[in-house]
């Protein structure tokens, strides 16, 4: 038997309405605060409604990957800590946390927001590593869009530490990290034949399929991921893409 609350939400969406009065393509109120953590080289706290995500950037000197000896290293990691939701469990990162981190990673990497070749110190030996760590603080739906927004906001706020005799001096900075683009990730959810943006926790329960797009300032699509165990129509992709591109411009404005 179908859950009564789910049925109610589905009925509302079919009529183009939502339980909190939003339009189907309307986000909850978004707040972006940067520079919130003093020990991180860059940080941002993003709230979308009650969803809260913090992204912190640490810069370290690391060995480059063998196949890219003259490029810096970018790593994205996400923690779904049990403090943020009763369904998150202690232990190694879950499948969903890993997927989220990898989709955020692709949005930033493939957009070439960070030009990794500029982060080389000594080819083959020492390069800058940019570590983006995403911490979910309160899970009320739409974690991916919030995490991606927090990540790019934090990068835009990142300063490269000063080096003395090849060592990092913490708390002193050389210059701001160059960020060439501001990729925005928008997840389009399909409920019945309707598209929905920024689902709340309750709405997420009834979403069958989702498509996420990482979108650059010039509208180029840098990352696509389909979620959910239901299929999509061919026509869905273009419709979802159009919706995401329009909305990405709105969210990008929040980055200043």
């Amino acid at each position: 038997m179908e859950n009564i609350a789910d049925k109610y939400l589905k009925g509302l969406i079919e009529g183009g309405r939502r339980s909190d009065g939003r339009k189907l393509d309307e986000f909850r109120e978004i707040e972006v605060k940067v520079g919130v953590m003093k020990n991180a080289e860059g940080s941002a706290l993003v709230k979308i409604g009650d969803t809260k995500v913090i992204a912190g950037i640490k810069m370290e000197i690391v060995e480059p990957f063998k196949d890219t000896p003259e490029e810096g290293v970018l790593k994205v990691n996400a923690e779904f800590s049990p403090l943020a939701s009763p369904e998150f469990e202690i232990g190694p990162p879950s499948e969903d946390a890993i997927e989220l981190a990898r989709v955020v990673d692709r949005g930033i990497r493939e957009s070439r927001a960070i030009e990794l070749e500029r982060l080389c110190l000594e080819p083959k030996l020492r390069v800058w590593g940019v570590f983006i760590d995403i911490d979910i603080l309160n899970h009320c739906g739409n974690l991916l869009d919030a995490s991606a927004l927090a990540s790019i906001a934090a990068l835009l706020n990142t300063k490269i530490p000063k080096l003395e005799n090849g060592e990092i001096v913490r708390g002193k900075f050389e210059k701001a990290l160059q960020v060439a683009f501001k990729p925005i990730t928008i997840t389009v959810c399909k409920v019945g034949n309707n598209f929905l943006l920024d689902p709340s926790y309750e709405e997420e329960e009834i979403v069958e399929t989702k498509l996420s797009f990482g979108i650059r300032d010039d509208d180029k699509i840098c990352a696509i991921q389909k979620y959910g165990s239901k299929e999509l129509e061919f026509s869905d992709i273009e419709a979802a893409l159009d919706l995401a591109v329009v909305k990405s411009k709105e969210l990008r404005k929040l980055l200043g």
Binding site: C222, E231, L232
Partner: peptide
């Protein structure tokens, strides 16, 4: 119907 759609690049 489409069941996988995943992409990266520009």
């Amino acid at each position: 119907k489409i069941t996988l759609f995943q992409g990266d690049g520009q």
